[in-house]
Amino acid sequence: MGLVESGKLPKPLTSLLNTSRKYSIWIFQWGLACCAIEMGAALGSPRYDVMRLGVIPLPASPRQADLVCISGTVTDKMVPAIRRLYDQMPDPKYVISMGSCANCGGPYWDSYSVTKGVDQIIPVDVYVPGCPPRPEALLEGIVLLQERIGKEDMAARWKGDPIVVS
């Protein structure tokens, strides 16, 4: 894939690669609190059925995932684990922050032990608001991310850096 790294990918090839990428997202479920149950309802229940969007919710480890969904309250004790998880994911990687707690602290905005927003430690692509968001809201967040992936310039996003595991 030398073409991708040097940024010389022709446009039709880019759109073909992007289309295939956006309909085969492996999502890693990082369920922390209440939102984890709504994420489970969105990803694992027959009523909402995320697989029709081309999202596969069952990677064995973060090293096989393209997308991580941080759902729930991030506490300061949890921060190192989340950072390590993000570092282990291969490029190109995406993050959805689900729920008010992961977005900005939510109802625990003045708590001593809660991290006010997961974007302080890892870059976030899509914020899904709500406390907790309905499963439909998470699905819409995933669709938004897919649109974004479809329009992406692959060379800009994927620099071909080696995966660093710390």
Binding site: T73, K77, M78
Partner: peptide
């Protein structure tokens, strides 16, 4: 334990 400690008892005071 403590990965989900959100400080409830302290927050209720304010």
């Amino acid at each position: 334990m403590g990965y989900m400690h959100r400080g409830y008892e302290k927050l209720t005071e304010v």
